[in-house]
């Protein structure tokens, strides 16, 4: 779409939107938020970009094919479920790793990996839908 306002606003917005989506994603660890809603906002950023600059440029910005994103998301989900099998726990059991870095605690866990998977799947799925709708015309 050729509109100076949209182009300028999009350039400003896309960074903020992606940052916000990551913020929502990590906030979901203990508070409302998480992979799904984060993914929605992230997908919103790319959708806005696709409306403003077309799908070809958006593909370049995204670097990977959105369907690959879905596949990577699924892979991440599977891995998060399979990790506990190593210690003979049931599929999808939450495994945690606590690290200290300076003054802050870092909590790494299989639920986090699962959430990354959800994030990637949501972004991949919505962007795929938007692309196929846009490209049909």
């Amino acid at each position: 779409m050729k509109s100076l306002i949209l182009h300028t606003a999009t350039r400003l917005m896309i960074g903020i939107l992606i940052l916000f989506s990551l913020f929502l994603f990590f906030r979901g660890h203990d508070e409302p938020g998480g992979g799904f809603i984060g993914g929605l906002v992230g997908a919103g950023a790319f959708t806005l970009y696709a409306i403003a600059f077309g799908t070809d440029l958006t593909r370049k910005v995204l670097r990977v094919d959105p369907i690959t994103l879905i596949a990577l998301g699924l892979a991440s989900l599977v891995v998060s479920g399979v990790i506990p099998l190593i210690t003979a726990d049931p599929f999808l059991t939450g495994k945690w790793l606590f690290l200290e870095w300076g003054n802050s605690d870092i909590k790494l866990s299989t639920p986090l990996l699962f959430d990354i998977g959800v994030y990637l799947c949501v972004v991949g799925f919505i962007v795929t839908v938007i692309f196929s709708l846009e490209e049909e015309n």
């Binding site: 690959t68 596949a71 990577l72 699924l74 599977v78 099998l85 049931p90």
Partner: peptide
């Protein structure tokens, strides 16, 4: 633990096929 395999094997295969 084996009970989950008939579910995750198709999932893993589908993921690979998608990649």
């Amino acid at each position: 633990g084996f009970l989950v395999f008939p579910i995750i094997i198709p999932l893993i295969v589908a993921t690979l096929a998608l990649l």
